[in-house]
Simulated assay, not measured.
Amino acid sequence: MSGWTSAEKQLITAATALAPSVHNTRPWVLEFHDEHISLYERLDRALPHHDPVGRDRLISCGAALEHVLLAARFLGRVVDIDPRHDRAHPDEVVRVTATGRAEPSDGDRRRYRAISARRSHRGEFAARPVERDLRRELLGGHDVDGVGLRPVTEPGEVAVLARLLNHSALVLRADRAYQRELAAWTAPVRDPSPGAGVSSATRRVATLPWAGLVRPTTAIPDVGFLADRLSRELLLLVQTPDDGRYDHVRAGMAAERTWLTATDAGLVGSVLTQPCQLHEVRAGLVESLSLAGFPQLLLRLGHP
């Protein structure tokens, strides 16, 4: 295969910049070579209080990787993924190698076009439930090996989730180091550029579950009230069989592919990863929901 053209590099880089990331830190770097693209994680974008083991950073890299793959396929490239485990380059996450050419599928075209439309929705969803056929499409459409999407729909399960989210919110609201780190990564503008931190507008979303990022002023409703709110949403728990480096990457890939499919279908959503940073919350999800793997994040979807 011939190398990447300047136009291809520009399109892939622009698409990757729009991937969601923890605190909008954009913790990755792309490096183009003749036949492959290397994706590196940016260790200088670490969040030691929010993300002490770098799980969310790798989930973010997985979302970025999904954008790289979509953009490459949109350009007519056939690509393979090579996870990296090189001790000489521990920050290299994956290589994307061009192996041929083919027309992109209709699904790839639609998801690629959804990249520019996808946004984190921090408000309440409409009362209209997500249609059954669309739910089935979202649950079965991510096609990332080793990643499962677990809907949380039964009243008892939603009550468990509400209790765990309530606990994590109370812990994070009182964690001064976490709050200082979040404040440092809050941009002074409503629409910060990729990598510049979270929007100042998130400060005005002052109640769960829509706040997403818990601040000292976040209102935390009681568990019953929170469960009632959550019961009106489509809640998908992303889980992996193991909890290693590439499991986190694949979780980010699957979540972003599902989110882009939902965006193409007219839905809006947001991702919650903060609760899974607390050991007791992850353990509670595994035990209470009888999960077969490790919960990595919660994807909230609904009609705007």
Score class of each variant (00 low, 15 high):
T218W: 11
T218K: 08
T218E: 07
A219Y: 12
A219V: 12
I220F: 11
I220P: 08
I220W: 10
I220L: 10
I220Q: 09
P221R: 01
P221I: 10
P221M: 07
D222W: 08
D222I: 09
D222C: 10
D222P: 11
D222N: 12
D222A: 09
V223W: 00
V223M: 04
V223L: 03
V223I: 14
V223P: 09
V223H: 02
G224E: 15
G224Q: 12
G224A: 15
G224I: 03
F225A: 15
L226E: 05
A227D: 06
A227M: 06
A227G: 09
A227H: 05
A227L: 04
D228K: 13
D228Q: 14
R229Q: 14
L230F: 05
L230D: 10
L230C: 07
L230W: 04
L230R: 02
S231R: 12
S231K: 00
S231L: 08
R232M: 01
R232L: 10
R232V: 00
R232Q: 14
R232H: 11
R232S: 07
E233V: 00
E233D: 13
E233G: 00
L234Q: 12
L234I: 11
L234C: 12
L234P: 07
L234N: 10
L234G: 12
L235R: 07
L235S: 07
L235F: 13
L235K: 05
L235C: 06
L235P: 12
L236D: 01
L236H: 05
L237R: 04
V238L: 12
Q239W: 01
Q239G: 00
Q239I: 11
Q239L: 04
T240I: 01
T240A: 00
T240R: 00
P241R: 13
P241M: 03
D242N: 06
D242A: 08
D242T: 03
D243C: 03
G244D: 13
G244L: 07
R245V: 02
R245W: 11
R245T: 08
R245Y: 11
R245P: 09
Y246K: 00
Y246E: 14
Y246G: 00
D247Q: 13
D247L: 14
D247Y: 14
D247W: 15
H248V: 01
H248T: 03
H248D: 15
H248M: 13
H248F: 11
V249E: 02
V249R: 02
V249A: 06
R250K: 15
R250V: 03
R250G: 03
